[in-house]
Write a protein that binds this DNA or RNA. Structure first.
Length: 499
RNA sequence: GCCGCAUUCGUCUAGAGGCCCAGGACACCGCCCUCUCAAGGCGGAGAUCAUCGGUUCGAAUCCGAUAUGCGGUACCA
């Protein structure tokens, strides 16, 4: 049997971390098994579904490096695959057809109970400490009763007969699971009174129609699985295998939510995480290779991923670990690649400086490329580039006399040191202005004046960058350039003199 | 309430009856490197394997109960 798996997000929000991981596991499983990965949009919640969310979901999927073999059209992208349409609102006819069939076979029936009535039932059951369930009031209506309801203008829902007994299945991740039908809440509604189908029904129709072989989804669907199994059986469809993934959790171990965590993939992207790191991190949230390796590319993952090695307990989303993995991957990128990804972040950073009143110079690909050796190890995210090097791209630093003074030093010593350093640098001259040429003479002045080299360097660093943590000093000076280095030292000296 | 699932260092996890008085990684601490910050190297601390019972010569691993957490229980998905 060929492996066919699917991701079935509903476009009621931007691509969620949890959905992204589910997508990844489906994708990796498909790749590993030489199967087919299908994307289906579950947009039957008309009130909350939007085209923008659809776009975000597909866009972030691509960003993460996942493509699908079958899926819906969007914009200029045509639909792919022989089992379409892949958007549920376009499959309404099909659901109606299956519902009719179920009705004709008496596997489903019309129910005219009013929502208020149902609420009252539920309350009564609760009071009686019984599990809430539908009391099957309409389960055996006569033709006359139905006609009467109809004549009264009542719009019925369609309910699926659940019956009695136990539903059992073997989940790839959880093992054997048995659930009594009594726990299912009675005959379930599959079509609303307005004629639109409900989730439990549409997934089953679609999964059956699309010949899905493995349903890999979040644990929150585990308790619903018996309903699905019953529906599959009623349709005489082949049962897929189920694999229920552990949940991704907030730090307080509740199901990851927007309220307590950042859940949109797009947000992480905007913060400078790269897909290589993000995918690696997501893969490791609930799965491990069994070896001690943990840096894996998408390609390596799709060689090794095993569904039955997926962990069963929920996993807290740990940003520190994500950041570390992201840094690992940033360090692996080629120069050209890194530069290309870095520039937009630098530009954005400079733009905000500019709107704050600074005069900024353009950040070109060449200029950033030259900085790579000194910043590469200092980038946990792409967004870290701005704070690291933006001082190189502004005309004037915003400084004050207090911050110019290294700790352990006073203003007078600092002024003295900057003057001496300026002298040395001018002595080296513009032609020999190289990192290798600068260090020795600067160390020598420090020694002559009994300053710790580190203190001298710190004074210089602050004067020239406005920061206490920067890339290596001499490379920084060279990147700044001879003229601007001297200008900044002079500006700092002037500030100290005034103070 | 009812049903289901889960539970190994703070976090992600390895572990499929003896190799485990539990291994790796992130974070943390220390040292080395060092002009700051990183990166890197080395080392440290950190888990009575939720608890209690049972099975077994032997249990983190199998079984049961309890606890805790989470999920489901919608004319949401």
């Amino acid at each position: 049997m060929s492996v066919r798996v699917r991701l079935a997000p509903s476009p009621t929000g931007p691509l969620h971390i949890g959905t992204a991981r589910t997508a990844l596991y489906n994708y990796l499983f498909a790749k590993r098994m030489g199967g087919t990965f299908i994307l289906r949009l579950e947009d039957t919640d008309e009130a909350r579904s939007t085209l923008d969310f659809e776009r975000d979901i597909l866009d972030q999927m691509h960003w993460l490096g996942m493509d699908w073999d079958e899926g819906p059209e969007l914009g200029d992208q045509p639909a792919k695959g022989p089992y379409g349409p892949y958007r549920q609102m376009q499959r309404l006819e099909r659901y109606r057809e299956v519902a009719e069939q179920l009705l004709a076979q008496d596997k489903a029936y019309y129910c005219y109970c009013a929502p208020e009535q149902l609420d009252a039932d539920r309350k009564a059951q609760e009071a009686a400490h019984q599990p809430p369930h539908y009391v099957a009031r309409c389960a055996h209506l006569t033709g006359a009763e139905r006609a009467a309801n109809q004549a009264n203008g009542l719009k019925p829902v369609i309910r699926f007969r659940v019956g009695e007994g136990v539903v059992a299945f073997d989940d790839i991740i959880r093992g054997h699971v048995e659930i009594d039908k009594k726990a299912l809440g009675g005959d379930l509604i599959i079509v609303r009174s307005n004629g639109t189908p409900l989730y439990h029904f549409t997934v089953c129709v679609d999964d059956a129609d699309m010949k899905i072989s493995h349903v890999i989804r979040g644990e929150d669907h585990l308790s619903n699985t018996p309903k699905h199994i019953l529906l599959f059986r009623a349709m005489d469809a082949d049962l897929p295998q189920f694999a229920h993934l552990p949940l991704i959790l907030n730090p307080d171990r509740t199901k990851m939510s927007k309220r307590k965590s950042q859940t949109a993939v797009a947000d992480y992207r905007a913060q400078g995480y790269i897909p290589e790191g993000f995918v690696n991190f997501l893969a490791l949230l609930g799965w491990a290779s069994g070896t001690e390796e943990e840096i894996f590319s998408m390609g390596e993952l799709s060689q090794r991923f095993e569904l039955d090695h997926v962990h069963q307990g929920g996993a807290v989303f740990d940003r520190e670990r994500l950041e570390w993995l992201n840094g690992q991957w940033i360090r692996k990128l080629s120069d050209e690649d890194l530069v290309e990804r870095l520039v937009p972040f630098l530009v954005a950073d400079l733009r905000t400086l500019e709107s704050g009143g600074a005069n900024v110079r353009g950040a070109s690909v060449e200029s950033v490329r030259a900085l790579l050796p000194m910043i590469r190890e200092r980038l946990p995210t792409l967004a870290a580039v701005g704070p690291l090097v933006d001082f190189l791209f502004v005309d004037e630093l915003i400084l004050d006399a207090v911050m110019l003074v290294p700790k352990r030093w006073d203003a007078a010593t600092t002024l003295d040191a900057l003057t001496a350093a300026r002298h040395v640098i001018a002595g080296v001259g513009e032609v020999s202005f190289e990192a290798d040429e600068l260090e020795a003479p600067l160390r020598q002045v420090a020694e002559e004046r009994a300053w710790k080299p580190g203190d001298l360097f710190m004074a210089l660093r602050i004067a020239v960058t406005g920061k206490t943590a920067t890339p290596p000093l001499f490379d920084t000076l060279v990147a700044l350039g001879y003229e601007r280095t001297l200008e900044r030292i002079d500006a700092a000296r002037a500030l100290l003199e005034d103070a």
